[in-house]
Deep mutational scan, measured.
Amino acid sequence: MTEYKLVVVGAGGVGKSALTIQLIQNHFVDEYDPTIEDSYRKQVVIDGETCLLDILDTAGQEEYSAMRDQYMRTGEGFLCVFAINNTKSFEDIHHYREQIKRVKDSEDVPMVLVGNKCDLPSRTVDTKQAQDLARSYGIPFIETSAKTRQGVDDAFYTLVREIRKHKEKMSKDGKKKKKKSKTKCVIM
């Protein structure tokens, strides 16, 4: 069974824990209790493949930012979460993405942009803004509501699919490099 290491990042209060708990335990946590770091595991079937999701729910508070490099190193894919009623959390996505790329030393890291709290009427981040940002990053965008469960499975499952595509691409690139290195030079 394939294991996928997913990391949920975003500013404090955007609903990272609520999304994760909704996926794992099928219930909505409405009281806000700032996370330092929590880890969850769940076995699911995605596109006919049974897999184990190892999900790291991270601290959004700035005082825990020193811990970010460590979990970013171990993560295979990242859910970059903002709240649709919090423009600052949307603007912060850029910083999370840049930090992930720096730590992973790669421009090509599996990510999904997630606009959470889409059940709320007080939207300050337009869907088109988020779609445009995701398009500019070359990553999928999904709106979710941890409260109603809308888009929750889709967000995590899409990230797994992005990781699969990335692994497939990397193995193809690896095979191309191996083929090239088999060419021999004969000096007579």
Rank of each mutant, 00 (worst) to 15 (best):
K167A: 09
G12M: 02
I187R: 04
V45F: 03
K182F: 12
V112G: 01
V44P: 04
K184C: 09
V81H: 13
G75A: 15
Y32K: 00
Q61N: 03
V160F: 08
T144V: 15
G15S: 02
V9E: 11
R149V: 06
A83W: 01
K169P: 15
V152H: 07
F28E: 00
E3I: 02
A130V: 08
I100A: 08
V81G: 07
G48Q: 08
K5M: 03
K165C: 04
L19P: 00
R73P: 03
H94C: 15
P110H: 03
K42S: 04
A18Q: 01
Q25C: 13
A59Q: 02
G13K: 07
D154Q: 08
R97F: 15
N26G: 11
T74W: 04
I100H: 01
E168V: 11
G12I: 01
T50E: 10
K169I: 08
V45H: 07
L133R: 06
I93M: 11
I187D: 09
G48Y: 04
G13E: 02
V125C: 10
S89R: 06
T58A: 10
V114L: 12
I36L: 15
S136I: 07
I84H: 14
L53Q: 06
S39T: 09
I46R: 10
A130G: 05
H27F: 13
Y4P: 13
S122V: 07
T87P: 14
I100T: 03
T2I: 04
K169L: 09
E98T: 03
V7N: 01
N26F: 02
T20E: 01
M188I: 08
A11H: 06
P121W: 10
G12F: 01
A59L: 03
L23P: 00
D57A: 00
N86L: 01
V152Q: 06
G12R: 03
E76M: 15
D47W: 01
Q99T: 01
Y157P: 08
V9H: 13
K101R: 08
E31L: 11
T124K: 09
P34C: 13
K184R: 05
S17F: 00
D132Y: 05
K169A: 10
I21T: 07
K182E: 11
V29M: 03
H166Q: 12
G151A: 07
K128I: 07
T158M: 06
K177Y: 10
K167T: 11
E31C: 12
L52H: 03
E63N: 04
A11G: 05
D119F: 14
G12P: 05
K101G: 12
M72L: 04
E31Q: 13
K42F: 01
K167E: 11
D173E: 09
N26I: 02
P110Y: 02
Q22A: 12
G48E: 08
S39K: 00
M111D: 02
T183D: 14
V8Q: 02
V81C: 13
T58R: 01
D38E: 03
D105P: 10
M72F: 13
F78D: 00
T127P: 07
A134Y: 04
G12W: 01
V186N: 13
M170G: 12
Y32R: 00
S136R: 09
Q61Y: 08
M188Y: 14
T124V: 08
I36C: 09
D54F: 00
A18I: 04
Q22H: 10
R41L: 00
D126F: 07
M72H: 04
V81S: 11
E107W: 11
Q150H: 02
N86H: 02
R123V: 09
Q22C: 04
R135F: 06
K172W: 15
V125R: 08
V152D: 09
Q25Y: 02
N116C: 14
E162I: 11
D57R: 00
R102W: 07
I84K: 13
D57I: 00
K101L: 13
D57V: 00
Q129E: 11
D69Y: 03
R68D: 01
A11F: 08
V112Q: 01
I139S: 05
V29L: 07
D153N: 08
L113P: 04
I21N: 09
Q99W: 10
E49S: 10
F78H: 04
A59K: 00
K5F: 00
E76I: 15
V109C: 10
N26P: 01
L120F: 14
L23G: 14
E49H: 12
K178D: 10
T2E: 12
M67S: 03
L159K: 07
V109G: 02
R135T: 09
D69E: 14
E107R: 11
R41P: 00
M111F: 11
Y32W: 01
M111K: 02
Q99C: 12
L52F: 02
K5C: 02
K177A: 06
H94Q: 07
K169D: 08
D69W: 01
I100G: 06
K175W: 11
T183S: 08
M170A: 15
V44M: 12
I55Q: 10
D173N: 14
L19H: 14
G13H: 11
K104H: 14
C51M: 11
Q70D: 11
T35S: 14
K42P: 01
V103S: 11
V186D: 10
D38K: 00
R161W: 13
Q70L: 13
Y32N: 02
V81E: 15
L113Y: 05
I187K: 12
K16G: 15
L159R: 00
D119N: 15
E76N: 15
I100Y: 12
D92Y: 04
Y64M: 08
V152E: 11
M188N: 14
N116S: 12
V114H: 00
D69H: 10
D105V: 03
A59H: 01
S89F: 15
G15W: 01
V44E: 04
K167D: 10
N86T: 02
A59Y: 04
L133V: 06
H166E: 11
T127V: 07
P121Y: 10
N116G: 06
R73F: 10
H27P: 00
D54K: 00
C185M: 15
K5D: 01
G60L: 15
Y137F: 07
D69I: 01
K16Q: 15
A146F: 04
K177I: 11
G77N: 04
K167N: 06
F28R: 01
R41I: 00
T2N: 06
C80V: 13
D173G: 12
S122P: 07
L113H: 05
L56R: 02
T58W: 06
S145G: 14
C118V: 10
A59S: 04
T58H: 04
R97M: 15
N116T: 14
E49C: 04
E31W: 05
I21S: 04
S136Y: 11
E3G: 06
K101I: 09
K172C: 14
V8I: 10
F78T: 03
E3R: 03
G151N: 12
Q131R: 07
K176L: 12
